[in-house]
Design a protein around this nucleic acid. Sequence first.
DNA 1: GTCAACAATCTTGTATACAAGATGGGCAGA
DNA 2: TCTGCCCATCTTGTATACAAGATTGTTGAC
Lengths: 216, 216
Amino acid sequence: MKRSDRIAETLEGLIIDGTFADGERLDEVQLAGRFEVSRTPLREAFQRLAISGLVEQIPRRGVFVRQPGPVQLVEMFEVMAELEAACARLAAARISDEALEEMKAINARCLEAVELRDTDGYYYENERFHAILYRQSGNSFLQSECQRLHRRLTPFRRLQLRSRGRLSQSMAEHEAIVAALEEGDAQRAAAETRLHVAVQGEKFQHLMSSLRPAAE
Amino acid sequence: MKRSDRIAETLEGLIIDGTFADGERLDEVQLAGRFEVSRTPLREAFQRLAISGLVEQIPRRGVFVRQPGPVQLVEMFEVMAELEAACARLAAARISDEALEEMKAINARCLEAVELRDTDGYYYENERFHAILYRQSGNSFLQSECQRLHRRLTPFRRLQLRSRGRLSQSMAEHEAIVAALEEGDAQRAAAETRLHVAVQGEKFQHLMSSLRPAAE
DNA sequence: GTCAACAATCTTGTATACAAGATGGGCAGA
DNA sequence: TCTGCCCATCTTGTATACAAGATTGTTGAC
């Protein structure tokens, strides 16, 4: 149970970054050749991908890449918003001073990135911000569920950051979250966080509809 | 991809209902014989169980049943509470009159069950109540995530219902949820739902600690 | 007597062989 | 020429054979 793990991760990356197009069929024997293994470990990897929802296995037909459609993406962002809001709610009571300081430090670096128009730098700090939020929920199950969905939404979140004025807006939202956490105001921390993530979904949705107008 | 599906479901049931004890090793060849298949479909089933977290695969050692420990259970109930609260929040704006009526009807039947001390009957109606709540979130992704976790917590929820006076208390909580939904009060619907599920976790936790005092 | 090392055996992980279902093309009939 | 049926081929699903690592029991030495 080692080789199939690596293969699953690799394939997951290739699907997430769009190397495999939506609807494309993944050929067992071809990929087996590419990875220099037999079909067995590949099939194991396929199963994992199918459970994560990255591919669909149609019996006796094969596995096909399934990128989430616009509707499903909106739904996933909605759930992400609620999960992160839950993290914030719990973190408001549980967060350590140390983590709070770290979040502030991250926000400071984010501000620099905004001024430098450094989208990649901002992205990196943003990732850390959210990772800390998950962790400070004090609920490791919630943390891992958040990480799972977060990872799944990676490419779409990244896109959304490119939206005009989004960087500074995102920053402001981060600061509001930290402020609420510092005051221990669970209600507000949750609300601010929910808004922060929901906005991402909306921005993304807007971007999508402007990119492909009236697609199907 | 059919036989392994059925096997995975069967094994999942056997693990959830406690036929396989925590820590028990699942023998590939033995189970293959029992199901009258080769090791291949069994291994596929094992993988699925491993991803759902019901078993742990230790490389070159085998698969072992992993029942969640008390800490993890509390965490899972906490997440369940937040997910269901999210359903309620969304449902408050999206629920149909029809579904609302159905929830009221279920509560009426629940009341009967409470009076008859019919725990099983109550359990069944309770399941439907929550299923409708998930559905009425209007978010199919959220719905499936809720169903997944709900299913995982099944045996522990069931246990908790046996707690003294829990039935009528649960009923009252259901009514509060429906009332908030009817008014379209998202905030309150979420809060009531969160409480309702969180109480389940607490009741369960209490039950556990009374059953095995100072276990390890 | 106890501990350590080695070997035999068992179990998992991987490859390959085999079976069965699905698809597509070709052929025949209308 | 078009349509429908059948056969060939391809791909998946399953079984089995093979390889490699882990465990355990036995034997020998201290």
